[in-house]
Amino acid sequence: MTEPLLRVEGLHAGYGAVPVLRDVGLSVAARTITAVLGANGAGKTTLLRTLSGLLAPTAGRIVFDGADLRGVRVERLVHRGLAHVPEGRGVVAELTVDENLRLGGLWRRDRADARRALDEVYHLFEPLARRRQHAGHQLSGGERQMLALGRALVARPRLLLLDEPSLGLAPRVTAQIMALLQRLRDDTGLTVLLVEQNVRSALSVADQGVVMSLGRVAAATTATRLRDDEHLRHAYLGF
């Protein structure tokens, strides 16, 4: 078996003195979608924030593409191919759509390719192209999700961390986003770590599922098994 793109071992993290993540371990193979599932407060967001360095782990290792991420500053991670779309999307409300998108590619040396990536995103998300000069706060929920996702894609990441993209979106829009993730995986080889409450949607596109409960990994297996294992579903996913 080849080395996974992301490997997490014995990760502990929390806020101040309050521990949240306890001994979390998981591995994500390249070109796959991994769904991170679990109840509210299970620690999913905390896991993503720790992975992207916004929270310092108290113990454990995060190995991305063969290199330990400890001590790498948050703003450098994007250089290594890691993009994080935070919970609530993080669209900068005061900036225009175009500025938000350009922001995603500012760090890149290859200006020509950054511009190309920007055009691709506009091509991918037609509604954004029509609203280039609109401010972030003028967009609908679905458009904001497109903007956040598109902004991450401008960086041409290898690993995309997505925190609850379906939150507050109509089922149809959610389905479109899931289909898009699947297409990105198949066409461009993108690897996705997808945090979702919307278990059915997530498992419909995921290859792998990780179930979190009270800050620990309760189960990690293939998406198909998670879908079919009634016991697991009842215990952790509530359906």
Binding site: L54, V78, H84, G90, V92, L95, L103, L106
Partner: peptide, 22 residues
């Protein structure tokens, strides 16, 4: 670009860091 970075970090520092802004 630096003006865009400055505005972004003033409005949304955490998101800006995630997008590679120092």
């Amino acid at each position: 670009p630096i003006g865009l970075r400055m505005r972004a970090s003033a409005f949304a520092p955490e998101v800006s860091r995630l997008l590679g802004v120092d």
